[in-house]
Structure formats: C-alpha cells, structure tokens
C-alpha cells in the first residue's frame, strides 16, 4: 500500500499521469472516494497523460465513456454509482473492454471489488482542512500490479507521505 499526498488539483493530475505511464493494456483501475473526492479529476489527468484530446467528462449517467488514444489503446471510463445489482455490473462487460486493447477506470468499483479480479485500487480522500488537497492511497491486487510496484513507488516518490 502506498500513501500519497496531492496538495493541489495539479498534483492529483500528476499522480494520475505517473500511473498512466506504467499502465498497460488489460489494466483495471478502481477509483474510490466520496462525491467530490476527485475521481473524475483523476480520470482527466490519466486520460490526458495517455494522449486523449477529447474532454473527459463524468460517466455517472451514461455508465461508460470510451476514448481513443494515439497509442492504439482505448481508455474506458466507467461509473457504477447508479447500478444496483451485480448483473447490471456484468452487463458493462468490463472484462471484454479490457481484452480489446483497453484500460478501464471504474468509479465506485470498490463496492464490487470481489467480482473484479486483479486491479489497482486508488482511494481518494478529501482533507476537511484543505479543500485543494487529497490523500491518495494506492493498493494493488494480483501479480500484474505486484510486479510493477517498485516502478509505481519510484514514479510517485515526490508525493509520498
């Protein structure tokens, strides 16, 4: 587990960009945190780092937004906040999106974590005393993340706390 401190929105974007740099086809990244914690802001920083030029907007009402990147990867940004059953989550076909040259960012995915398989959990927490700052905790599940952990630590070193 890795504890990071983002002092500003720019820091959140930079941490997202550092993770984008080590991400690859087939990665599932779960974004957890309350309303306004910065899940979509994280997705924006992540997408921009992959070279997405379209505006990245919240998928809460449309469930999944997909963005092409110059590197042939497709970034899928999903949100299960409006869903109430496991079958509705299954209908998103996240495993298929991952297999088709995709990376998936899944907002609120922590509530169904057990059905997801290997993933990186990005927990974002607001600081009641500093409205720009966020505490960001990273934890990986599965081998795919374990083997990249030292690179993730190195890439986010300046934000470690």
């Amino acid at each position: 587990m890795l504890h990071l401190r983002a002092r500003s929105l720019a820091d959140t974007h930079a941490i997202a960009a550092a993770l984008a740099a080590v991400s690859r086809r087939g990665d599932l990244i779960v974004l957890a945190g309350e309303m306004g914690a910065g899940k979509t802001a994280f997705a924006k920083g992540f997408g921009q780092a992959l070279g997405v030029t379209e505006p990245i907007t919240s998928p809460t009402f449309t469930l999944v937004h997909s963005y092409d990147t110059p590197g042939k990867l497709t970034l899928h940004h999903a949100d299960i906040y409006r869903l109430s059953t496991q079958h509705e989550v299954a209908d998103l076909a996240l495993a298929e999106l991952l297999e088709y040259d995709g990376i998936v960012l899944l907002e609120w995915g922590d509530v169904v974590a057990r059905s997801l398989g290997e993933h990186l959990l990005v927990q974002l927490d607001a600081d009641p005393d500093d409205e720009d700052a966020r505490d960001i905790t990273l934890s990986g599940s599965g081998r795919a993340w374990a083997e990249r952990w030292s690179r993730i630590e190195a890439a986010t070193e300046e934000y470690a706390c």
Partner: peptide, 12 residues
C-alpha cells in the same frame, strides 16, 4: 443476481 451492497460505503 445479487444486490450491490452499497451499505459498505456509509455515505453512498
């Protein structure tokens, strides 16, 4: 099918 256990997040 099963309901998603949203109660695992207090404020959700």
């Amino acid at each position: 099918d099963a309901q998603i256990n949203w109660s695992t997040r207090e404020s959700a």
